[in-house]
Structure formats: structure tokens, C-alpha cells
């Protein structure tokens, strides 16, 4: 079984800003899972991770599944909640009304609104896969998927 304690870390020195992670993320969350078909989907899958550049470095940004998540406190539809066992913030899309309270309260700017689907775009750590798609897609190994104690560069 997949370890629930693993998190995404980033070796910033290795990140080229190529955005392969963004592409892989969109694809992994598309309906068709096929790159040529995915770009034609009516409600196109948008990346849950965005690479931002600052002072010459590149930083992939996505939901950190905070221990004290502001988005959960702000969610007026009770669509977001923290699952401590899985160590993540879980999103019940069925309950979401698209009020964007989570977007407004995320201190990392890691949640964006998808206006077409009225759903929040946020990392789900690729729950249904053995590891997140961005990790596999990164050509330089800048995205590290491990437990906190194991982080080393």
C-alpha cells in the first residue's frame, strides 16, 4: 500500500522551470488520460501545480495539505476537510459550490478557481496512483516524494 506520510519536496537547484510537472498533472486529472484527446476536452483539465519563478529560481507550487488548513476553516460548504490518517486535506467535490473561499484563504496561493467546472483546482497527491504524476514527469529529479525524515538533497 502507498505510504500516507509521503510529501512533495522540491530541489530548487534542479528545477529548470520546464513545466513538465504542470502538463503531467493536467493529463493525470483529465477525463481521457490521453494528451491529444485531453486538450480537446470541453472542460479542459487544468494543472494543480504551477511553477513560479522568483529571483532566478523556479518553484513548483501546489497544495501542501497543511496541518491547520485555512481553506478548511473557510469552506462554507464543508466540502474541504482534513483527514489526519491520510495526512491530507480532502475535497468532496459534490459539496462544493464554487464560492472560492478556499482560494482567498490559502496562504500559499496554491488553490485556483476553475470557472468552467466551478471546482477548486488543488493537488490531491494523485490518490489513485502509486505516486504523483508530477514526480514521474520531472526530467531532472527536482520533485522529491518522500517522508519528512527522509528529505535530503
Amino acid at each position: 500500500m502507498r505510504s500516507f506520510m509521503k510529501k512533495l519536496y522540491y530541489d530548487v537547484k534542479k528545477c529548470l522551470g520546464c513545466k513538465s510537472c504542470e502538463l503531467a498533472c493536467s493529463l493525470a486529472h483529465s477525463l481521457t488520460q490521453d494528451i491529444f484527446k485531453a486538450i480537446k476536452e470541453e472542460k479542459k483539465s487544468l494543472p494543480r501545480k504551477k511553477v513560479h519563478s522568483s529571483k532566478g529560481n523556479n518553484y513548483p507550487v501546489s497544495c501542501r495539505h497543511c496541518k491547520e488548513p485555512k481553506c478548511v476553516d473557510a469552506c462554507m460548504a464543508a466540502a474541504l476537510y482534513r483527514d489526519d490518517q491520510k495526512d491530507m486535506v480532502v475535497y468532496d467535490q459534490e459539496r462544493c459550490v464554487g464560492c472560492w473561499m478556499c482560494v482567498m484563504s490559502c496562504p500559499y496561493g496554491a488553490i485556483r478557481p476553475n470557472i468552467l467546472t466551478k471546482l477548486a483546482i488543488r493537488c490531491d497527491k494523485c490518490q489513485d496512483k502509486d505516486e504523483p504524476a508530477c514526480v514521474k514527469a520531472c526530467p531532472t529529479g527536482a520533485i522529491i516524494w518522500c517522508e519528512e525524515a527522509e528529505v535530503k538533497v
Binding site: 519536496y9 513560479h52 522568483s54 496561493g109
Partner: peptide, 17 residues
């Protein structure tokens, strides 16, 4: 984006290594 404010906020950054 967050990297622009990262060095200014209170919590110490842990994910970017």
C-alpha cells in the same frame, strides 16, 4: 506567487530544499 513572499512570511520554508 508564493515564492515572491516566501522570505518575508513568518513560517520557515520547509518544502523547497
Amino acid at each position: 506567487g508564493y515564492p515572491d513572499i516566501m522570505d518575508l512570511v513568518k513560517d520557515k520554508e520547509k518544502l523547497y530544499v
